[in-house]
């Protein structure tokens, strides 16, 4: 899974994070390094769609939080991916 929007949502699912923290978190849990352009492209799109929102910043780094809408979208996508993974596992066993 390399869709940057899903990776950002997944990163924010367990708490608010700013850009660098998201980048590091995604690298740890997905093994994917998002470039600055890709990360901020995803952040811009997600904010436009109302799936994430900025929270009060203490310095120049602005943290983001996932919204209820974003959480619902992430859950839908995870369920869909889960179904694919289960089907693939089942088929691999019977192959």
């Amino acid at each position: 899974m390399t869709d940057p929007t899903l990776l950002v949502l997944a990163s924010l699912a367990d708490g608010d994070k700013h850009g660098y923290a998201m980048m590091e978190d995604i690298r740890r849990f997905a093994g994917v390094r998002l470039g600055p352009g890709t990360l901020y492209g995803a952040i811009t799109r997600l904010e436009e769609r109302g799936w994430i929102r900025p929270v009060a910043a203490e310095d120049r780094r602005r943290p983001y939080a996932i919204t209820a809408l974003g959480r619902r979208y992430l859950e839908e996508q995870v369920s869909s991916l889960d179904a694919v993974v289960k089907a693939a596992r089942r088929r691999l066993k019977h192959a």
Binding site: Y20, G35, G37, R60
Partner: peptide
């Protein structure tokens, strides 16, 4: 976004491919 983008860059170890990645994003 420029201020927070710059703040992120201060912390990141940048590679050459990030220049093109940023340009493509822009």
């Amino acid at each position: 976004y420029a201020a927070e983008f710059d703040a992120m860059l201060d912390q990141v170890d940048v590679e050459w491919k990030d220049v093109f990645n940023t340009l493509r994003g822009a």
